[in-house]
């Protein structure tokens, strides 16, 4: 019963993407791949997919660099200061997305970056980065501190130790956090809704806009592709035993 409840809306989207009718209906009538062809030819969706992929990649890259450094900084400053920054850096997880979206809209408008890709990157990094920080923090806390001490006592500099000892040891956490950051950015629709404009729109925001005004099976086809893509991505990482072990 609960399983049906969980899977039902996704099954409906997937099934209705194959309908032969010109509108979304469940159960679907007939079978057709027309909507997949249409979605691949529709410049709106293709452009939005391209934006989402670039946005996700850039967000992931920045989030990993900033998140790893922040997590290292937090564990390095063991004590009040570290705990304080941990609270601050993880707080966007609990902040309502609308408030963040509203605030970033104001900041971007004030600085003339409203409706730009760069503004989207800033917003997505704030949303995704805490998850990288949290994953890497968990990894670092399991790390034996003597490993670093040994490296330092053998004459390695702090930067060398960080890059050659610390980072490789928490590789699994970093990869897990990175995939999470990408999926969050790729699916993000709340904060982004405040920031998109005529020249900048992501795939979820485009679908959101379409769903409200039309009943076109193309959306079902695009949605199905997104779900399959994200499930495969996460599936790959959770299968990686190293990644699972670190979390």
């Amino acid at each position: 019963m609960i399983v049906v409840f969980i899977v039902a809306p996704l099954a409906v989207v997937a099934a209705s993407s194959f309908t032969a009718t010109g509108y979304v209906t469940f159960p679907p009538k007939g079978f057709s791949l027309e909507w997949y062809v249409k979605s691949a030819q529709d410049a709106t969706f293709v452009d939005a997919l391209w934006v989402s992929l670039r946005l996700g990649t850039l967000t992931t890259f920045i989030s990993v660099v900033a998140g790893v450094l922040a997590a290292y900084g937090i564990t390095y400053n063991n004590g009040r200061l570290g705990a304080f920054f941990e609270q601050i850096f993880l707080s966007p997880i609990m902040l309502p997305g609308v408030v963040l979206g509203l605030g970033i809209l104001f900041v971007l408008s004030a600085s003339g970056w409203r409706g730009t890709f760069e503004g989207g990157v800033l917003a997505h990094v704030i949303v995704a980065c805490p998850f990288v920080t949290r994953a890497v923090l968990a990894g670092l806390r399991q790390l034996d501190p003597r490993l670093e001490e040994a490296s330092r006592s053998l004459g390695a500099g702090p930067v060398h130790t960080f890059l050659r000892i610390v980072v490789p040891s928490v590789r699994g956490s970093i990869i897990g956090g990175a995939v999470f950051a990408f999926v969050i950015s790729f699916d993000e629709a709340v904060v982004t809704l405040f920031l998109t404009g005529p020249t900048f729109s992501t795939l979820p925001v485009t679908i959101f806009t379409y769903v409200q005004y039309s009943n076109d099976p193309t959306i079902a086809a695009v949605s199905t592709v997104i779900v399959v893509f994200c499930v495969i991505l996460v599936g790959l990482v959770t299968r990686n035993p190293k990644g699972r072990h670190d979390r």
Binding site: V12, V13, T25, F186, V211, I219, I226, V234
Partner: peptide, 21 residues
């Protein structure tokens, strides 16, 4: 795994499915 499914799928896609259902 089944419980995790809604967490991994875009909220826009899920909601679209519900609007059809």
């Amino acid at each position: 795994a089944i419980v995790m499914v809604p967490m991994l799928t875009s909220v826009v896609v899920k909601t679209f499915g519900w609007s059809v259902l």
